[in-house]
Simulated assay, not measured.
Amino acid sequence: MTIGKEHHMMSAVSAAGIAPTAYAWQIQATGLKVRVGRKRMAVNGVDLSLGTGVHGLLGPNGAGKTTLIRTLATVLRPTEGTLEMLGESAGGMGEHRALRRRIGYLPQEFGYYKRFTVREFVEYMAWLKEVPKADIPAAVQRAVERVGLADRADERMKALSGGMVRRVGIAQAIVNDPTILLLDEPTAGLDPAQRLRFRELLQELGTDTCVLVSTHLVEDVAAACTNVVLFAEGRLVFQGPPDELASVGGPEHMGDSPLERGYSAMLLNPEQGRGTW
């Protein structure tokens, strides 16, 4: 037998790469409460388990969606209950530096230096997330390509439209190839064609990432999400596949689609959803 150019090479795999996953869920919360201000409990006793896939976070204004996402991003600290992310406790005052390297986060509004180019800004965010220096150029190029901004990568941020800035925000959130991706209203400012491409990107990311995306656009959830998380008044009132939520609604409920009518029905009677999943 001749061993030459056609021989099979075994790729080097680190011990971490072959070690079994030490956690059942990427995100697991039990009795989670988060207080905003002195009195208001914006997240009030939530039990939630999320794994790989795309999870759509729905709810009216003031429901607690942004507070939940900020808590998962380790920006806010839980007031009560337990929160584990990737098998690590994310509560209390502990140092979450290692955990943050594995999280991608896009807030509703994010700050940036207007004089930076797109590439410079995403490079800077990759550096903050401790992406290895040698890997940063390729990681940045891949991120800007995935959001359709490769041809604008060397333009300054101040020259971009609002929708383009939002796409840069998505690029910085995914530049470190996160295990958990948290997106708060990511489609704000995107035109219909950009939203369609974003849905495709979500589905792509959800194959090996736990994605939680907060949105007011029920149709985005219907098109891209495998799971719906519905919040009302700081509480989880429904979790399940979009088809299950759609089945709750009827012609008497508000909405232009079955999912919108199911959403309206559940908000009218939130107790209906508890204990059904």
Score class of each variant (00 low, 15 high):
residue 14 S to P: 03
residue 11 S to T: 13
residue 91 G to D: 09
residue 18 I to D: 03
residue 78 P to S: 07
residue 115 R to M: 12
residue 60 P to H: 02
residue 12 A to C: 11
residue 88 E to D: 01
residue 188 A to I: 08
residue 74 T to D: 00
residue 84 E to D: 11
residue 248 V to K: 03
residue 222 A to P: 03
residue 79 T to D: 01
residue 254 M to E: 14
residue 106 L to N: 05
residue 236 L to T: 05
residue 194 Q to P: 06
residue 180 I to H: 05
residue 69 I to N: 05
residue 191 D to C: 10
residue 151 D to L: 14
residue 112 Y to M: 15
residue 118 V to R: 09
residue 137 P to G: 12
residue 223 A to R: 09
residue 14 S to Q: 01
residue 4 G to K: 04
residue 229 V to P: 01
residue 206 G to K: 05
residue 273 G to Y: 00
residue 264 S to R: 03
residue 118 V to C: 12
residue 182 L to G: 11
residue 87 G to A: 02
residue 225 C to P: 04
residue 51 G to K: 00
residue 152 R to F: 15
residue 103 I to R: 10
residue 130 E to H: 13
residue 82 T to R: 11
residue 49 S to N: 11
residue 93 M to L: 11
residue 214 S to H: 06
residue 267 L to D: 03
residue 18 I to G: 06
residue 122 V to F: 04
residue 74 T to M: 00
residue 52 T to I: 13
residue 77 R to K: 13
residue 153 A to L: 08
residue 182 L to I: 09
residue 106 L to W: 00
residue 145 E to R: 15
residue 43 V to G: 04
residue 94 G to R: 14
residue 150 A to R: 14
residue 189 G to I: 03
residue 142 R to D: 15
residue 136 I to R: 15
residue 115 R to L: 14
residue 10 M to S: 12
residue 135 D to C: 11
residue 126 A to C: 04
residue 18 I to Q: 08
residue 81 G to D: 01
residue 113 Y to V: 14
